[in-house]
Design a protein around this nucleic acid. Structure first.
Lengths: 140, 140
DNA sequence: ATACATCCTCCAGTCACTGGAGGATCAAGC
DNA sequence: GCTTGATCCTCCAGTGACTGGAGGATGTAT
């Protein structure tokens, strides 16, 4: 018989909160766990791998629907892998946009943050700067 | 009498959804709007400025509690402006962290996304890469 | 008179969890 | 055998910042 893990062990090994693991089960990212006689969830190495995959995907910024697709792909090894690459590429483009947006923001904020000479709020350039800011940020 | 604006006008002029304006009123970011005889909200130039301030603050990535502080500051022009600068600086530091994190992520994902040669999912390097990724991202 | 836009309130849903109440079970030490 | 404390269970509410829709009233243009 293989080694069995309690939900808390799984949580520790993957850096996931116990409640989050139950949540993943509820939304179907993880299969329904086997239960001990007293009703506690019991896991094995395959469950651990699957959860690790989910967590790594989340760290890489994939949404839960994206991870669902990726999991479906890895569950059916004969399907085309192009779909996985497409998800990754789309995600990469998205991250590029987010970085660019944050950098625009950083330069705007740098101006804002360095412009206060410390006086009454009436002359506060920070507040003025926010009031007058018109960022050209695309919403989509 | 000054020009009065309907909620839809305010929405158009600030690029805010009507529902969002009502939401800001509900949480107290905007004062309770004056009403017309038939109960419709009616705004003036000061309301427009306040909402613009809120939107710009949001675009700069300030949270609603932060904007609340900034608004309180600009409502009381005799208070110290150092607080405003502190909020801006804290925010700037945060953005720096977020950019750094996203860049770590981008290089990891670039590797992931370029490693698929288009075959069966069993050999898909994208999936492998996600399964094996261990990003050193600080959580706080 | 009619059509259509805009407004109102109220409420549910989004995303990805997080935290807590209230109670059962387990392992270890005495 | 008993107690203590950790861990587990289910269920439910809350987070942030909105977004969208139902169902109905009002405004405006033709």
């Amino acid at each position: 018989m293989t080694k069995r893990l309690a939900i808390g062990d799984l949580a520790r090994e993957t850096g996931t909160k116990v409640n989050t693991i139950r949540f993943y089960e509820e939304i179907g990212l993880l299969p329904e766990a086997l239960r001990t006689a007293s009703g506690r969830r019991s896991y094995d190495a395959a469950d651990l791998r699957r959860l690790a995959f989910v967590r790594h995907g989340r760290q890489l910024g994939f949404s839960i629907p994206e991870i669902r697709s990726l999991l479906a792909l890895s569950d059916q090894p004969d399907r085309d892998c192009g779909a996985a690459a497409a998800i990754a590429r789309a995600h990469l483009a998205d991250i590029g946009i987010r970085i660019a947006r944050l950098e625009t923001l950083r330069s705007a904020l740098t101006e804002v943050a360095t412009s206060c000479e410390g006086g009454r709020a009436a002359e506060c350039r920070v507040i003025e700067a926010i009031a007058g800011t018109e960022l050209a940020l695309q919403t989509d």
